[in-house]
């Protein structure tokens, strides 16, 4: 008897089979669409230009060829690629530090301290947070150029440091994870506001500091439009540098005037290296991403 019911439960109608097959096809197609370009990008730098054109797209070249492409990339413009990466690191980290210094106290105050204008500041933060960051790039450029700051690293770092999403994340965190009673207890014990913040709230804030830091770093590292407009020459970050590199690839610019030539596998290597830090962070910080992305819905 039990054997029969078990079998009946296992039996799958033809309609279900077709349904399952369809689901599998959709899943596999989209998985391939999302992942194959990345697999290709990881393999391309191991090949020579002719291997890239002639061999199978997912074949592995050789480590020697990878080394040769590596050398070509880092020799380009007497090592300017290293400078670009260094600039990206410098801009992203400086902005990250300023973002944390200003956002954590701001989110804390918005969540747990009553002051006039709090609601206005909160609503403004939400509105600005939801407009795409590119929307303000040209106005910021126009402003910085009036302030004669174009070309200065500050022209990248300061606008990068303005990160309303970070304030919002901190606000959500403090208003859900830390109770006012806890702070009031410390106040009754005679702690001043600075001590309440520094010794009660801050030790609890580690998760949100990591979260804000993560999102700020990713957003800044990947930003192209703003640095493209406000810095040039040796000061550009790697995102902008990549497009400079493109100008020296004969396959895309047959009339390229420069004598130094970047071949396709080298360009692929540059692309891979330009995203490597973020790719690595993504691999290890899955849960962070999900937490941050769904932060809007957690408070209901």
């Amino acid at each position: 008897m039990s054997d029969i019911t078990l079998r009946r439960r296992r039996a799958i109608s033809p309609g279900q089979w077709i349904g399952r097959a369809l689901v599998a096809i959709v899943l596999i197609t989209f998985a391939a669409f999302f992942i194959l370009p990345i697999v290709w990008l990881v393999l391309a730098p191991t090949k020579s230009n002719s291997q890239l054109l002639l061999d199978g797209p997912f074949s592995f070249g050789s480590f020697d060829q990878l080394a040769a492409n590596w050398d070509q990339l880092f020799a380009f413009g007497s090592g300017v690629f290293t400078t670009w990466i260094g600039n990206s690191v410098f801009y992203s980290f400086s902005a990250l530090v300023i973002t944390l210094i200003v956002s954590i106290p701001a989110g804390y105050a918005l969540a747990l301290i009553e002051f006039k204008g709090r609601r206005l500041l909160l609503v403004t933060t939400l509105i600005v947070m939801l407009i795409p960051n590119t929307a303000l790039v040209l106005p910021i450029f126009l402003e910085l150029s009036a302030a004669r700051l174009i070309g200065s690293p500050l022209a990248v770092i300061l606008p990068f440091s303005f990160f309303p999403f970070g304030v919002y994340l901190t606000y959500i965190y403090f208003s859900t994870a830390v109770s006012r009673d806890l702070l009031n207890a410390a106040r009754i014990d005679g702690a001043g506001e600075l001590r309440v913040f520094g010794q009660v709230a801050m030790p609890l804030a580690t998760p949100v500091i990591a979260l804000v830091g993560f999102f700020s770093f990713v957003a800044n590292w990947n930003n192209y439009f703003l640095p493209f407009l406000v810095v040039g020459g040796q000061k550009i970050p790697v995102q902008v540098g990549l497009s400079n590199l493109l100008a020296n690839v004969p396959a895309f610019n047959p009339t390229t005037a420069t004598s130094i030539v970047i071949e396709l596998p080298t360009l692929a290597l540059a692309t891979l290296l330009s995203v490597a830090p973020i790719l690595i962070i993504f691999l290890f910080a899955q849960r962070f991403l999900v937490e941050g992305m769904t932060a809007g819905g957690t408070k209901e």
Binding site: A106, A109, E114, R118, I140, E143, L194
Partner: peptide
């Protein structure tokens, strides 16, 4: 408390003015 509220949001508010409001107005 409210005075410290202003201290805590001051840095962020400055950035909001400098890179949100001011560029828009300009």
């Amino acid at each position: 408390q409210s005075r410290y509220g202003y201290v805590f949001v001051s840095g962020y508010t400055l950035l909001l003015l400098a890179f949100g409001l001011l560029p828009t107005l300009y």
